[in-house]
């Protein structure tokens, strides 16, 4: 196997690579060992600091916090997809009156940091319960990004698709609704799901306006003196929950992509914009 940067290794290179592997392993083991040592010295492994998961009320609180995170995610994702579809169609409109405002709105919401938007809705406009501000801000930001994704997807479809649809007598809205958008969504599925992963992670910003989601709960448990202030263990557990949820979503994306490829109903795009969008999803 020959990669871009490196040729197939010969006998001397193999020895050198083995040396690198040994050095690398030593470095990784060293770092992990140091962290474990610090954990041990500062008593992060003590039974007291890990006693909190045994209590039923803590488990229930954690579950309800997880439910709140998932609720913000579910509503945010649903509305963002809708927002994205509507504004993608708006950006592709033939009428300047619709196209220009759609583009401006999408650009605007992509440029404003999510934190500033959340503050604006929560403190500036006093939307009430934090969940509303979080969902609205998540919708506007991720919806704008998704609008760009949908638009790129529609533009990358072969022109024959819309020409054929017009030829059989469809109207503009029918072409978009029945022919272009469904294909664009299938083609851009990996990019869409990776944006949903971003949305799920960004729901943690609700922490800043005291929305009772996972991170907020982590802080509450972490500060509890009766468990010996287990901030480090709680952060690790909550981090693991987030990583598991995001990986599940990512696996869903790869599974759907594989199934799509087997179905062969996806049209080969003329250019592949999906990978850039995925790489840039921060």
């Amino acid at each position: 196997m020959s990669a871009v940067l490196f040729d197939v290794p010969g006998p001397r290179a193999r020895i050198r690579h083995r040396l690198y592997a040994v050095i690398g392993t030593a470095a990784v083991v060293g770092v992990i060992g140091f962290v474990v040592y610090r954990f041990w010295v500062t008593g992060q492994f003590s039974a007291e600091k890990w006693s909190w998961p045994q209590y039923e009320f803590v488990q229930l609180q954690l579950l309800s916090a997880l439910g709140n995170t998932l609720r913000a995610f579910a509503f945010g994702a649903l509305f963002a997809l809708l927002f994205g579809a509507i504004f993608a169609a708006g950006q592709l409109s033939d009428h300047k009156i619709i196209r220009v405002p759609s583009m401006l709105i999408v650009e605007l919401f992509r440029a404003i940091p999510l934190v500033v938007m959340i503050f604006m809705f929560h403190y500036g406009l006093s939307l009430g319960a934090p969940v509303y501000s979080v969902v609205v801000a998540l919708t506007l930001y991720n919806g704008s990004v998704l609008a760009e994704v949908f638009r790129a997807g529609v533009l990358s479809l072969p022109r024959g698709q819309s020409e054929a649809a017009y030829a059989v007598g469809m109207r503009k809205s029918q072409v978009m609704r029945l022919v272009l958008l469904p294909q664009a969504v299938r083609a851009m599925l990996p990019a869409i799901i990776s944006q949903l992963v971003v949305l799920l992670k960004d729901s943690a910003l609700g922490f800043l306006i005291t929305y009772e989601e996972l991170l907020n709960e982590a802080q509450r448990i972490g500060r509890a003196f009766e468990f010996g202030r287990p901030l480090v263990p709680v952060t690790i557990v909550v981090g693991a929950i987030y990583i598991a949820m995001c990986l599940l979503l990512t696996w869903l994306a790869t599974y759907l992509e594989k199934r799509n490829r087997r179905d062969k109903k996806v049209i080969e795009l003329e250019k592949k914009p999906a990978e850039d969008v995925i790489a840039a999803a921060v």
Partner: peptide, 24 residues
């Protein structure tokens, strides 16, 4: 894989509140 799937807010949370407890 680990970092990309962790919310930035959680990374902030760790370094601001939890990291000092390790006394490094």
């Amino acid at each position: 894989t680990l970092i990309r799937n962790t919310p930035l807010t959680l990374v902030f949370f760790f370094f601001t509140f939890a990291f000092p407890l390790l006394e490094i």
